[in-house]
């Protein structure tokens, strides 16, 4: 027992001297508290936070990375989109009205065909028409603030000066606007195909996408119910040779009922 107490006392002494040194021997520094998280309040948002929001939209709601990624080869990579602007504006193939980086980037999102990078145009158009949908409409439906945020992010990504200003009007914020504005229903099937961008992946109408099954004779192959179900729940059945999870699953909420019916009827009639 005596030995035990001696050893215990010795061990405690060692531990206390270590603790004592750590408490008294080195300066007492209080580490910095963790940084505060991004606020969504536009009013007090810094441009860095705004760029951060742009990045989130770019990778999230905007679904940009669906095509603009290093693996698919479906659309150009955007790391240098902002730095090559000057060259683009001078390019004889350029059809837009932008004058600087910011306006060029915005234009490329809402009028994608203003300039099509060689090799990325719609099949058969000789790179004159872009397969990319107008991001301000259709299922993507980004508002101005969101487009500005993505523009800011692309500028930041390209390493050029971020000229985008944080919009001051907080009521226009990304969070609130989602469902406020009622979109006008599309009037023709062509509008739907264009705006939803079916042709980016499918061969349908004038488009010749290859990521999804050919739809030019779909009415002969599938029943009406099957086609409707495939739009609403794309993963329910995957045509052999095509990949799962490619087609967005939210057309059921993006399209109005009348539009869906119009589209289904159109597809059924393709024989």
């Amino acid at each position: 027992m005596k030995n035990f107490l001696k050893v215990a006392a010795f061990s405690l002494l060692v531990i206390f001297s270590f603790a004592g040194f750590a408490n008294l021997g080195i300066p007492k520094i209080e580490p910095a508290p963790p940084p505060t998280e991004e606020k969504i309040d536009l009013g007090s948002m810094t441009i860095e936070q705004f760029v951060g929001i742009g990045e989130k939209i770019y990778k999230g709601k905007g679904t940009c990375t669906l095509c603009h990624n290093a693996l698919g080869g479906r659309a150009p990579l955007l790391e240098k989109a902002a730095t090559v602007t000057a060259a683009r504006l001078k390019d004889p193939r350029y059809k837009g009205e932008a004058t600087d980086i910011e306006s060029y980037l915005v234009e490329s999102m809402i009028k994608p065909s203003a300039f099509v990078v060689a090799g990325f145009g719609k099949k058969g158009t000789n790179d004159a028409v872009s397969p990319m949908p107008d991001v301000s409409t259709g299922s993507i439906g980004m508002n101005e603030v969101e487009i500005a945020a993505v523009t800011a992010y692309l500028q930041e990504l390209g390493g050029v000066e971020v000229t985008v200003k944080v919009p001051e009007d907080a009521s226009d914020s990304a969070a609130e606007d989602d469902e406020e504005e009622q979109r006008k229903p599309f009037e023709t099937v062509e509008d739907i195909l264009d705006e939803v961008g079916c042709g980016a992946c499918h061969k349908v109408g004038e488009d010749e996408g290859e990521q999804g099954p050919d739809l030019t004779k779909i009415g002969a192959l599938r029943t009406e119910a099957h086609i409707r179900a495939s739009i609403l729940d794309p993963n329910a059945e995957i045509t052999k040779g095509f990949k799962k999870d490619l087609m967005p699953k939210d057309y059921g909420t993006q399209l109005y009922a009348s539009e869906l019916e119009m589209l289904v009827n159109y597809l059924v009639a393709l024989k």
Partner: peptide
Amino acid sequence: PVELRTIHPAPPSSMKAYGKR
């Protein structure tokens, strides 16, 4: 009292100057 400063604090991963990041 003895004051101790960390002479080389860890830098932030990004900084803002001249209106740029």
